[in-house]
Nucleic acid binder design. Structure first.
Lengths: 239, 239
DNA sequence: CGGGCCGTTGACACAAATCAATGTCCGTGG
DNA sequence: CCACGGACATTGATTTGTGTCAACGGCCCG
């Protein structure tokens, strides 16, 4: 499954420059990082918990989930990563961080040697700053995830997650009818929200009454504002 | 309550150098940051959610809690911060981050102008790297917090939180009998674990059967390993 | 055509929330 | 020094959201 096609990190650069100014030269430095394209099947582990790895992965297409250390058989997804993101960016600065990563759907990714990206960051302060900022933005999502688990009921959690993914996939300023592709199973939603897949199923049915449906990896939202309301969602944390 | 006594950021520097090498000169740069000491009562807000602030706070003594955006009356603590930490360090790189901060007990803190710490970071790459790493370490704690809420029952959540705070207050390698000071109320534990204070109370009583007691802001653990076991705790995420 | 993953349904159990009091400690002011 | 008030802790009865267990159904792919 290994290819040597040219890689395109433009979406990642776009992501960075939306919050951090980078010169053309700096942008090129990132875009020309060496990398290998890799296609993986759903539920393929990308990193195990204790794996010492020497590369980061860029999500080109598909969906990746982050699982944190958890002695139990219990699974908990602590973050979802969509195309354009580098799920283990933090390993640049904390190589021994204990996180596991899995592809959740059919996914293509680019593996980038950590040394290469570290070298670029070390020689370009603006890039280091952009990467730092990206880490902090991810952390903001983590803390909102805590709020979601800590003080919302099942239905609301799922609705909130759908809102978050809608914004992340489609950008800000949504309204009215919204449709987006989110290749996730009910069991994966359960792992993300701290629920059972059975209960997720029931909540999804209940959400249909509010004009929200998830079918075959596509979310159909009849009225954005209504969902936002049901989810008690405020996009501010996503900037 | 404003004082102009000399501030001492040594514990923060110690915290940084435990994971990031810094020269003596760099350490001094941090220790000599300008700051004002401030003493605040329990439950005093330090930052509101939408407050644009131009300083960071260093916890000198006491306990601070971070509350994330949450439209409901519901409160959720997403992070606890103990002496030696800078709870809103991320605001250096993301000034508009939406987080609220409160003192949870009688607390003394040092307010540091953001410009000052930004200037130091900008002119000393090693310091910027150390601060970045500190942000990522905080994020590791956030994601473990998600695991705690997502897949542990009430008793286990509280036990896990006690383990985490024990390590953070006293350092690694605990064993046998452990006692530490943790100035927190049952209601605050409830806000941190996504539970009711009533249920926290019942769980604390249940934990007494395992030789763990929280009384007047002090935690008494009869046998560290037994608590670790009950909490399904693994300190790896704290490094 | 068959097997496996995913989704769906129902009955039941249980952990935790809710509601409503009461108790305890501690600082404050009379 | 004592009485008061408020924050915090405790207790019991009851309700409810979610988990668990056990089946069955549907779709896709080989």
């Amino acid at each position: 499954m290994l290819q040597t096609a040219p890689t395109d990190l433009s979406p990642f650069v776009d992501r960075l420059i939306s919050h951090s100014p980078l010169s053309e030269a700096e942008q090129m430095k990132i875009k020309t990082l060496p990398g290998q394209i890799l296609a993986v099947a759903p539920n393929t582990p990308l990193f195990e918990l204790n794996e010492a790895s020497n590369h980061v992965v860029y999500i080109n297409d598909g969906l990746a989930g982050r699982f944190d250390q958890n002695a139990k058989a219990d699974r908990q997804i602590t973050a979802l990563h969509i195309p354009g993101e580098i799920p283990n960016l933090q390993s640049i600065i904390l190589p021994h961080a204990q996180v596991a990563l899995q592809a959740l759907s059919q996914t293509t990714l680019v593996t980038i040697p950590r040394d290469a990206i570290c070298a670029v960051a070390a020689s370009h302060p603006a890039i280091a700053e952009a990467l730092w900022r990206d880490c902090v933005r991810s952390a903001m999502i983590l803390s909102q995830w805590i709020v979601n688990l800590g003080c919302r009921n099942a239905r609301c959690r799922i609705a909130h997650l759908m809102c978050e993914m809608a914004i992340r996939y489609k950008g800000q300023q949504l309204k009215g009818k919204v449709v987006y592709n989110w290749p996730v199973t009910q069991l994966q939603i359960a792992d993300a929200t701290g629920l059972t897949s059975i209960h997720v199923n029931r909540c999804l049915q209940s959400l249909k009454n509010d004009g929200v449906e998830l079918r075959r990896g596509t979310v159909y939202i009849a009225d954005w504002d209504r969902l936002v309301n049901a989810a008690k969602f405020d996009a501010a944390y996503l900037q």
